[in-house]
Amino acid sequence: MELKAILQLENEEKYEAALTKYRQAYFEKPSDFEIWKHYYFFLWYLNVEDGSLGLQEFVKINNLSLELEQISNDGIKKYSQIAEGLFVLGYTINLFPYLFGEYVEWEQKGKEMMVGAANLEPNNIIYSMVVLGLGVEIQGNLNYKMVCKKAAPIVNDKFSSNGLLNSYFKAVLFRIN
């Protein structure tokens, strides 16, 4: 089953079927960045949102916290030189560092990954926007506001497809009123 079909399962909230298909796809193509990226995000999202989605038992029975750890470690090993890999890892780790280990240590690692992504692709306006937002006062920062405005149409375009990763990042990275 191709990734597009798995992302449709995510949209339809068929998480059990999506998990089965992700496991199969990742086993068949363990070096496919796109599969890893969406699979990793899927696991992260279900671990983070298990309560609001009513999936606590599903997450527990399927041991998705251990699976998230394994897939994130795999991604860190394989994709630390790919800006998008660093960005997705860094953003998610920075938001919920306790899922990965010691809070302060992993929060810092997440920030470093996002900065690393911005350094690898200095012309990527989305990465620049997020890094600017890490350590600056958002209100009143004209540079940050300008970057948010420039990034908005790119965010809409980049994250316009199906799936949890796309809908999540479209929502959190579209930062203009």
Rank of each mutant, 00 (worst) to 15 (best):
M1D: 04
M1W: 11
L3I: 05
L7I: 04
Q8R: 15
L9K: 08
L9S: 06
E10D: 03
E12C: 04
Y15V: 02
Y15H: 10
E16F: 13
E16G: 14
E16Q: 15
T20S: 07
Y22S: 03
Y22Q: 05
A25N: 00
Y26M: 01
E28F: 06
E28K: 11
E28Y: 09
K29H: 12
P30M: 00
P30C: 01
D32A: 00
F33S: 00
E34V: 01
I35K: 02
I35V: 15
H38L: 08
H38N: 15
H38M: 08
Y39E: 01
F41N: 03
F41G: 02
F41H: 10
Y45D: 06
Y45H: 07
Y45L: 04
L46I: 09
L46R: 05
L46W: 07
E49D: 12
E49Q: 15
D50M: 12
D50H: 14
G51F: 11
S52T: 10
L53T: 02
G54E: 02
L55G: 03
F58Y: 13
V59F: 02
K60V: 05
N62K: 00
L64W: 01
L64V: 00
L66P: 06
E67V: 13
E69A: 13
E69P: 09
Q70A: 13
Q70P: 10
Q70F: 14
Q70Y: 14
S72G: 10
S72I: 08
G75F: 01
I76E: 13
I76N: 08
K77E: 13
K78W: 03
K78L: 02
Y79N: 01
S80Y: 11
A83I: 00
A83D: 00
A83G: 01
E84V: 03
F87I: 03
L89K: 09
L89H: 14
G90I: 01
Y91V: 05
T92A: 11
I93Q: 09
I93D: 09
N94H: 15
N94V: 09
N94Q: 15
Y98C: 07
L99V: 05
Y103V: 12
V104Y: 11
E105Q: 07
W106D: 12
W106L: 12
W106F: 15
E107P: 06
Q108V: 08
Q108W: 10
K109T: 04
K109E: 06
G110T: 09
K111F: 12
E112P: 08
M114K: 05
G116Q: 02
A117V: 02
A118I: 04
A118S: 09
A118H: 06
A118E: 06
N119G: 11
E121M: 08
E121H: 06
P122W: 11
P122N: 07
P122L: 05
N123L: 14
N123F: 13
